[in-house]
């Protein structure tokens, strides 16, 4: 039973009358990345703060790496690290000083702390910026120094709270690479994000959180499957071909093909990918030139919207519980 990295039962955290975390049950195994996905104010940060012993729960229990977050808080602190949503390094100090500070607090002597700081600065591509104050760093550099500070002593479990919010695509990729490297070295990562593709890219399993509750849980594929099958989008080059294309697609796919508002476009929900290939060659045989032909899984956006009951009209009252 202690192979769980995180185990909570009915976890509650209340701020005044606001139930920020409202009965969260989690069972997250060790290893890999677990994603917390949810909109602003869903309770992601609050949950993480309770798990990292920064806030005390008002109800329920939480065990992190087999230790209770309230009664064995110090045990938990020895094994976990937190990179908060907002810079959790000292902006007035330089990157190197921050890392040396953390190193010394963990018990590295002066020279060892310095060596570790240099090693991390180098690994995170901050060698040249090491002697600059963190407040003069770019957003991406800040994130990196923040993560570096979290692994001065390698944690068994790392909490990353929205590590890529506000980063440009390149910095975002850098952070993703760092996360992947950590996972391959055996660290368990709990990552919160508002970005669906981030959860998709990194997380093995995802908990979708809304209004303090876990509303769905599973792999990204399972979550997507909960919304329905894959969706096909076709745009013909010339709008006069649309009717013909539609007939061909309906024949080959054996499903309803919808005409979109765009006079060139058609769309369909398909279950069998094999048929799609056939449909494509049938269109080609009929000499109907296409501007676009794409088959995709439903996006996590669609999943999220359908789970939270906002716009998306997919008729799923899904409680994907793949546990």
């Amino acid at each position: 039973m202690n192979d769980l990295a995180i185990e909570t039962h009915g976890l509650v955290k209340v701020f005044g009358s606001n139930r920020a975390v409202d009965g969260v049950d989690l069972a997250i195994p060790r290893g890999g990345v677990h994603g917390f996905l949810g909109p602003n104010g869903a309770g992601k940060t609050t949950t993480i703060r309770v798990l990292a012993t920064l806030a005390r729960p008002d109800g329920g229990t939480a065990r992190v790496l087999g230790r209770d977050v309230v009664t064995e808080a110090n045990e938990v602190r020895q094994r976990v690290s937190l990179t908060g949503q907002f810079a959790s390094v000292d902006e007035d100090l330089t990157g190197r000083e921050n890392l040396r500070l953390i190193g010394r607090l963990f018990g590295h002597r002066g020279a060892a702390a310095r060596r570790r700081a240099d090693e991390l600065l180098d690994a995170f591509g901050l060698g040249d910026a090491g002697d600059r104050q963190v407040k003069k760093y770019s957003g991406g550099m800040r994130r990196r120094i923040d993560i570096a500070a979290s692994i001065v002593v390698t944690p068994e479990l790392l909490f990353l709270d929205e590590p890529t919010t506000g980063l440009d695509p390149r910095s975002r990729n850098e952070v993703w690479d760092i996360v992947r490297a950590m996972v391959s070295s055996g660290t368990t990562v709990l990552l919160t994000t508002q970005y669906l593709d981030e959860a998709d890219q990194l997380a093995d399993r995802i908990s979708v959180i809304d209004r303090g509750k876990v509303i769905a849980e599973g792999t990204s594929t399972e979550l997507k499957a909960s919304v329905g099958s894959g969706s096909l989008h076709v745009r013909v080059m010339d709008r006069v071909d649309r009717e013909a294309a539609r007939a061909i697609l309906e024949r080959e796919l054996a499903v309803d093909v919808r005409e979109e508002a765009d006079p060139n476009a058609l769309s369909a929900n398909v279950d069998e990918q094999g048929r799609v290939t056939r449909a494509l060659s049938a269109l080609d045989d009929a000499r109907i030139p296409l501007a676009q032909f794409s088959l995709g899984q439903p996006t996590l956006d669609e999943v999220f919207l359908s789970l939270t009951g906002h716009p998306a009209e997919e008729t799923t009252e899904t409680e994907v519980d793949a546990a």
Partner: peptide
């Protein structure tokens, strides 16, 4: 693709993660 295209930074990070010892708590 992500894992394959990992820059040499990742290798250094792996090394940094691996080389860490646990000093005695002060």
């Amino acid at each position: 693709e992500g894992a394959g295209a990992a820059p040499d930074g990742s290798a250094k990070i792996l090394q940094a993660l691996a080389s860490s010892e646990r000093p005695t708590p002060p």
